[in-house]
Design a protein around this nucleic acid. Structure first.
Lengths: 233, 233
DNA sequence: TTTAAAGTATGATATTTGTCAGTTTTTGAA
DNA sequence: TTCAAAAACTGACAAATATCATACTTTAAA
């Protein structure tokens, strides 16, 4: 990692997962020449709600939570962005300040790509623009699903769903624990509930044998049961 | 309405409000030649959840609710689309079946624009693609805001917010009632609550003098009070 | 015009979820 | 290694919201 070869966007493996794969050689070269690689420790912020972004961030490693703070001091996590995902493009495209803040959930490595690169390519390369559009369409669908889930499912169902989501999107470690370990508070903020309520449900799931825990790590023991719960059985 | 002049997209006034304004003359001519104008009565569906769309709908008149049905039989309204808005582009762009259904809230007039037109222009005219992207970025931001609202505000706050939203987006009639009249059930489905809870809150607001009602029509009497409520005072 | 159906309204009650207060456990820095 | 701070946890209780039952009102179809 971080050697001369991999540090060129042209050779960066995460590009496969995002819209940058639709850039041509020249465009990519320009991006590569102007990008800045940053390392963030767990808990550090990429940007805060309300900031104006001069570019986007491409995640090379680690996970960032995108969240919005409410008047009562609670954070709602809207999305977890991982390797290959681009953060901040919504704000750059709409030319608005960000509506979300982005904080590292674990140690991260990201590339900052200045706005100009993105905007120029958007206006010149339809394939790139369409690709960005596709990703955003996908994000929008996910957002719609979250809205429906939050308003129509119980907290218990949403917690169950969150665990299944974490398994499907971030996988498990060798011992069968979820590869992405979130604090109880973060889980509560994904689900949109109070931390205590979340902890209580985790305890209940553990008691019933649906999940196993080890410190703050959580593993799915009976996926079927969680699925049934989500479906309303 | 509906005369030879207005029936050409080139002359259609609602185009100002959507991405079609970024199309050039030829593209617009093609759209105009292949589009189909439809009229829908209140309650009729443009499409149902899960359908594959062969094109998008451009709203000329009336309002459509975009909603998703949940397992427990309740509908969550995710968006209200009005004059000038384009419906279904998310699904066409992502090449997925729709995640939402679209039903007319009042009598509507829409133009159906076949997919090919859109896709061709997306790939050829970056200005159009960027414009679509901008609109989608805006929708995504709104969706994020809805998520945060639903998970962090009380039902009472959300009902108050819904009325303010209706006033700002659809205006008022001569007597000071909201120009868009929704059923109590639809309001509940926008807010994400039970119909009875919604009705109860409407009664309470009325008793307190924040709003006035006349049949199913609702008018905002004390905007300040509603705003305070939303802000948490 | 009548009448059934749909929509609106309200009370009583159950359930879910949040809040507060306090204890235990874990973590990371000195 | 120790210790203070943060995080995880638990119980008791309060508040918000949903559900069920039922009555009233409006609407639209026969």
């Amino acid at each position: 990692m971080g050697n001369e070869f991999e540090s060129r966007c042209e050779n960066c493996i995460v590009r496969q997962f995002n819209a940058l794969r639709a850039m041509n050689k020249e465009e990519l070269k320009k991006v590569s020449d102007s990008k800045i690689t940053k390392k963030l420790k767990k808990g550090e912020a990429l940007f805060e709600e309300g900031e104006k972004l001069d570019g986007v961030f491409c995640v090379r490693n680690g996970v960032s939570k995108l969240s919005k703070l409410s008047a009562n001091g609670k954070d709602q996590i809207v999305k977890l962005a991982t390797k290959g995902e681009v953060i901040g493009q919504r704000s750059v495209i709409a030319e608005e300040s960000t509506n979300l803040s982005a904080v590292a959930v674990n140690d991260m490595e990201v590339c900052f790509i200045p706005k100009d690169n993105i905007v120029t390519t958007l206006n010149a390369n339809p394939a790139f623009t369409v690709e960005v559009l596709r990703h955003m369409a996908h994000d929008l669908r996910e957002a719609d699903d979250v809205i429906v889930n939050i308003s129509q499912k119980t907290v218990k169902q949403r917690v169950a769903e969150a665990f299944l989501y974490l398994k499907n999107n971030f996988g498990e470690d060798a011992d069968g624990f979820l590869a992405l370990t979130l604090s109880r508070e973060d889980i509560a903020n994904v689900v949109g509930t109070a931390t205590e309520s979340c902890i209580r449900i985790i305890s209940e799931f553990k008691k019933k044998g649906y999940i196993k825990t080890s410190g703050k790590k959580i593993g799915i023991a009976e996926e079927r049961k969680l699925l049934d719960l989500v479906e309303g059985f």
